[in-house]
């Protein structure tokens, strides 16, 4: 079946089997390997991407379901050679160790901050509760997302002035 999917702002038209999972479409058809496969059984969130802005598990979503929709992966965060604020803050706040969960964490964090730019610890923990990290103990992930929120607010206040 032919599908047209916009990934990180670029439109791709490809012929895929209906059974192809979105995660395989991204990794194998487009070579975007930043979206990870952790459990392949809908439990870990390593495969999280945004579809029309909503975070979901790309191992539990068919590529054909994304036909005509817009997908954002970790590769889409960096714009014009500049890291996204959330990427910079994960780096600053030591929000990652091995990095396996990080693409998913950053995308969930970004989606959260768009709705709630100043989340409490509990709100961040609730938002990332579908994403498992086996390294950090989560503390610095929470800090990274909050720090990114503060910077995004400051930057949009500056821009408004």
């Amino acid at each position: 079946m032919e599908v047209t999917i916009t990934v990180n702002g670029r439109t791709h038209t490809k012929s895929v089997e209906p059974r192809m999972l979105l995660v395989h479409f991204l990794r194998e058809e487009l070579g975007l390997t930043g979206t990870h496969i952790g459990c392949d059984s809908s439990h870990c969130g390593a495969c999280t991407v945004l579809v029309d802005g909503t975070p979901l598990k790309s191992c539990t979503y068919l590529a054909v379901m994304a036909n005509g929709r817009s997908v954002e992966t970790v590769e889409g965060l960096k714009q014009g050679g500049k890291l996204h604020v959330i990427q910079e803050e994960f780096k600053e706040q030591h929000g990652l160790q091995c990095g396996y969960c990080t693409p998913g964490m950053m995308l969930v964090g970004k989606a959260l901050l768009e709705e709630n730019p100043n989340p409490t610890d509990d709100e961040v923990r609730f938002a990332i509760s579908g994403n498992i990290c086996r390294c950090t103990g989560y503390m610095n992930i929470v800090k990274s997302i909050q720090a990114a929120g503060k910077r995004m607010q400051a930057e949009s206040a500056d821009a408004a002035e």
Partner: peptide, 9 residues
């Protein structure tokens, strides 16, 4: 129910 990602779908 489930986790936030599953709940979105």
């Amino acid at each position: 129910i489930a986790d936030p990602l599953v709940r979105n779908m």
